[in-house]
Amino acid sequence: MTALLARHSAAVLSHSAAAFLDDVDTAPAAAGFRQRQQAEIASLAQVPLQSWRYAVSAPVTDPSASAATAKRVGAPVLIVHVSLFYALTLVDPQPTSRDLWWTFVQRDGRVLVAGDDDMAELGGASWTGPWDYGPLVAARGTSSLVLGHPQDSGQLARLAALVDAAVPVVTGVWGTGWVRHVAVLVPASDNELTALAGQGSALTDVSAVTVFDAQDPASGTRYGQRLVLNPHALARLTATGLRIVVAHEITHIASAAGTGQASPRWLIEGLAEYVANLGSTQPVTVAAGELRTEVAAGRLPAALPTDAQFAPGSARLAQVYEESWLACRLIAARVGQSGLVRLYRLVGASPDVAIQALEAALHRVLHESTASFTMQWRGYLTGQLG
Rank of each mutant, 00 (worst) to 15 (best):
residue 322 E to I: 01
residue 111 V to H: 09
residue 89 T to M: 10
residue 10 A to T: 05
residue 118 D to Q: 13
residue 346 L to S: 08
residue 141 G to P: 05
residue 5 L to D: 04
residue 353 V to T: 13
residue 69 T to W: 10
residue 224 G to W: 01
residue 168 P to F: 07
residue 268 I to P: 00
residue 353 V to L: 14
residue 223 Y to D: 07
residue 119 M to F: 11
residue 226 R to H: 02
residue 371 A to C: 08
residue 192 E to G: 05
residue 273 E to I: 03
residue 230 N to G: 02
residue 131 W to Q: 01
residue 297 A to F: 06
residue 247 A to Y: 01
residue 193 L to T: 02
residue 74 G to V: 15
residue 28 P to V: 06
residue 228 V to R: 06
residue 58 A to C: 02
residue 31 A to F: 06
residue 52 W to I: 00
residue 44 L to P: 00
residue 328 C to M: 11
residue 210 T to S: 10
residue 296 A to C: 06
residue 160 A to P: 05
residue 322 E to R: 04
residue 363 H to C: 06
residue 269 E to L: 08
residue 27 A to Q: 10
residue 253 I to T: 08
residue 19 A to T: 00
residue 294 E to I: 09
residue 98 R to E: 03
residue 248 H to Q: 07
residue 63 P to G: 11
residue 126 S to L: 08
residue 203 L to G: 06
residue 318 A to D: 12
residue 180 R to K: 13
residue 173 V to I: 15
residue 307 D to W: 04
residue 69 T to L: 14
residue 57 S to L: 13
residue 367 H to S: 13
residue 131 W to G: 02
residue 338 S to D: 14
residue 92 D to R: 01
residue 97 S to A: 10
residue 243 R to C: 03
residue 347 V to D: 09
residue 261 Q to Y: 05
residue 149 H to N: 05
residue 25 D to H: 03
residue 18 A to K: 04
residue 251 T to W: 10
residue 23 D to K: 00
residue 94 Q to D: 12
residue 380 Y to C: 07
residue 302 A to D: 14
residue 265 R to G: 03
residue 250 I to E: 08
residue 354 A to W: 02
residue 186 V to Q: 08
residue 221 T to G: 01
residue 347 V to Y: 01
residue 25 D to E: 06
residue 20 F to G: 03
residue 202 A to H: 13
residue 259 T to R: 10
residue 376 Q to I: 06
residue 56 V to E: 14
residue 41 I to Q: 04
residue 130 P to R: 00
residue 285 T to Q: 12
residue 132 D to G: 04
residue 381 L to K: 08
residue 159 L to H: 07
residue 329 R to I: 03
residue 81 H to Y: 01
residue 205 D to Y: 08
residue 226 R to T: 04
residue 180 R to Y: 04
residue 40 E to A: 15
residue 273 E to P: 00
residue 242 L to A: 03
residue 263 S to F: 06
residue 165 A to M: 07
residue 29 A to V: 12
residue 170 V to T: 07
residue 91 V to T: 11
residue 132 D to A: 05
residue 22 D to L: 04
residue 247 A to S: 13
residue 285 T to M: 09
residue 365 V to F: 11
residue 97 S to Q: 11
residue 176 T to S: 14
residue 22 D to I: 01
residue 377 W to N: 05
residue 139 A to S: 07
residue 74 G to Y: 13
residue 207 S to G: 12
